[in-house]
Amino acid sequence: MKVSDAKVCILQIEGTNCDEETYWAFKRLGADPEVVHLKQLIGTGIPHGMKRSLSDYQCLIFPGGFSAGDYVRAGAIFAARMKATLAKELRTFIGAGYPVGGICNGFQIMVELGVLPGLGESMTPLPEAILDKNDSDRYECRPTLLKHESRGNCVFTSKLPQNKVVMIPCAHAEGKLAFPKKEGDRIVEKLIENDQIVFRYVDEDGNYAGYPWCPNGAIYNIAGICNPAGNVFGLMPHPERAFHRFQHPDWTRTGLGESGEGENGDGKVIFESALDYIGKKF
């Protein structure tokens, strides 16, 4: 499939607010994105002609924001609505190998949906993890450094070399990835074995470090994970906010070209990798 034919569904409900940047990330790479309200997939309470189906798309993205005001828990209401109405379609979409990504609130939604970490099945009946309140009890909004750990499994980072450190900014109050107490170490080992750990927070020397380098206290410094098949990916920091080099906080000091990467921001590769995967597989 040509990248220009790749249709990307950027799914929103009330409170989603990163849909535009995510739309433009895909648009600038030549794909065919569309911001779609969940009601359009459910098919009720919408004007004639606005009905959409997940099967119309080759990629699904849950963008960042504060869906449903973060009421109950971050992502819980979006996830519950989706699970109640589109569980079968989502399982089919994931099972077909289409890429499904979640950024920040999108990652929280995917964890609440039970599609990440996805250890038992593609969508577990109850969440296997939580993105809990930051240890600092604060909204942490600033650049974070992430080390790419994937050994090649994650389709959203296939074009990023392993062990490369990238700057992608975070903006969240609930980003502490946690697993059931006493099972944390076992689950982390399983994630390592399955090549599901995609990004971990590091300091400026590339070492795994605590606060403030890790903004939330996540287990094993994890910033992003994928499912065992590699096509479902969630990340707390925002790659769409580092699409251009000039979005990096140091660009006036380091210039646009000195990094050898021209005007590319560190987040661009996430969207490029997903489109590259779609182009080759479908």
Partner: peptide
Amino acid sequence: CKRLLTNPVT
């Protein structure tokens, strides 16, 4: 509680 109000992990 199981399906919306709580997350059994925490």
